[in-house]
């Protein structure tokens, strides 16, 4: 996804979340919301393309690119212009599909309740275990001063010991997302989203919860430099 697009989407999302006090995403409630989608979309083991594409590994997928599904021209174009499905883009799309991707053939009016969307997205994310999701679940307005902190790479390398029990230093993905070579800013935003619990994952919330702003910057600098 192109950086400028990412940032604008993020800003929109931040504004949107700021207006509505958001509760914790609840994937189980999302499963109930998903019933409305089931008429056209399959998800989970053995899911196939039906009226709509299957939704396994949706997070991180470029829009309109799943093999074997005939997308609208509009969706293919959106993908070609850099639309990638993330928590933020899904939120915007699900709120009003026809205005986010005009001429999409998805015949769905949209999901107006922001909490329903957050829950649904959390449910969908369960089926994208390997997704490398750079930007955060927004909902968190990061102080530019935090983004500006210069990370200490040596300290970051030491701190990274905590990460490397699960995430591999050579960037290989074997059931755990790769966290090497990210733009530092994305890394920082993601870690702060875990720290303030707007991004859900109990292990990551715990790991990020103890990190100071300087420590997050140090990790971002260290991992950002690994290929």
């Amino acid at each position: 996804m192109k950086r400028d697009r990412l940032i604008s989407v993020l800003t929109v999302a931040v504004a949107m979340f700021a207006a509505t006090a958001q509760a914790e995403p609840d994937p189980q409630a999302g499963e109930t919301v998903f019933r409305a989608c089931k008429a056209c979309h399959q998800i989970g083991e053995g899911a196939k393309n039906r009226v709509g594409p299957h939704l396994n590994d949706l997070n991180g997928r470029t829009a309109g690119t799943l093999d074997g599904f005939r997308y609208s021209k509009a969706m293919q174009d959106a993908g070609a212009q850099g639309l990638v499905w993330t928590d933020e883009t899904l939120d915007a799309f699900l709120a009003d599909p026809k205005s986010y991707v005009p001429k999409t053939k998805m015949g769905y009016r949209g999901l107006k309740d922001p909490q329903d969307r957050v829950n649904l997205i959390a449910y969908l994310a369960r089926f994208s275990p390997d997704a490398v999701i750079h930007p955060s679940n927004a909902g968190y307005d990061l102080d530019p001063a935090i983004l500006a902190i210069k990370g200490d790479v040596e300290y970051g390398e030491y701190l990274s010991g905590d990460c490397k029990t699960c995430h591999q230093a050579d960037g290989s993905v074997q059931g755990m997302p790769s966290i090497t070579g990210w733009p530092e800013e994305d890394f920082i935003v993601a870690m702060h989203a875990y720290k303030n619990k707007s991004r859900t994952h109990p292990v990551m919330q715990m790991m990020a919860g103890r990190l100071t702003n300087e420590e997050i910057a140090a990790l971002a600098a260290y991992f950002g430099g690994l290929q």
């Binding site: 275990p129 699960c166 995430h167 591999q168 074997q174 059931g175 755990m176 292990v203």
Partner: peptide, 10 residues
């Protein structure tokens, strides 16, 4: 699935 990732990682 996460535990499998952890195993490879450790």
């Amino acid at each position: 699935e996460e535990s499998e990732g952890w195993y490879s990682g450790i």
